[in-house]
């Protein structure tokens, strides 16, 4: 089933790229235009994805994969969600505050550390990374409303 879905997603993506690239001038083999390579590559990908899809459909049901660890999906979802939320508030809250909140979610929600430890390790991670990367290595990180 996984193989079928993966191949179908690739096929859909390739078709979308073909449709989305209609406006790009194609040119010819002797004088390729801006659309020649992306559209040729998308067409090639569509072909290969169709083959993979056919192969997955013929192969039928794969042997069942071992069940994931209990709570694995939740942990995975929490990590990905926290990271996307972090990007949404990074410029607004500034690096130190946003990083502190990200670490709190990862240490508390995903890893279930005790609250007192969570606050300590999150603050340490936020401040230490600020000092290491911004102060010492000169990486420009967003200051937020606090100006640091």
């Amino acid at each position: 089933m996984r193989d079928v879905v993966a191949a179908a997603v690739l096929l859909l993506g390739a078709v979308a790229a073909l449709v989305g690239g209609r406006g790009l001038p194609f040119g010819s083999v002797a004088a390729p235009g801006p659309g020649f390579f992306p559209r040729a590559l998308a067409a090639g990908l569509a072909g290969v994805a169709a083959l993979l899809l056919a192969r997955a459909l013929v192969a039928g049901r794969a042997p069942a994969t071992p069940p994931a660890m209990p709570g694995a999906r939740f942990r995975l979802g929490a990590v990905v969600g926290a990271l996307f939320a972090f990007t949404a508030v990074l410029d607004w809250l500034g690096f130190v505050a946003a990083t502190f909140l990200l670490m709190v979610v990862l240490f508390r929600v995903v890893e279930r550390h005790r609250w007192t430890i969570v606050v300590g390790e999150s603050a340490a991670a936020a401040v230490a990374s600020h000092v290491l990367f911004k102060t010492w290595l000169g990486v420009r990180l967003p200051p937020g409303p606090w100006g640091f």
Binding site: L83, F86, L106, F107, E111, F133, R140
Partner: peptide, 22 residues
């Protein structure tokens, strides 16, 4: 459990540091 949040943080800083674009 302690290592992976730090690895993720390092990835975020690395990417942001190149372009300063969220």
């Amino acid at each position: 459990g302690v290592l992976f949040p730090l690895i993720l943080l390092v990835c975020v800083i690395g990417v942001y540091g190149v372009s300063e674009n969220v």
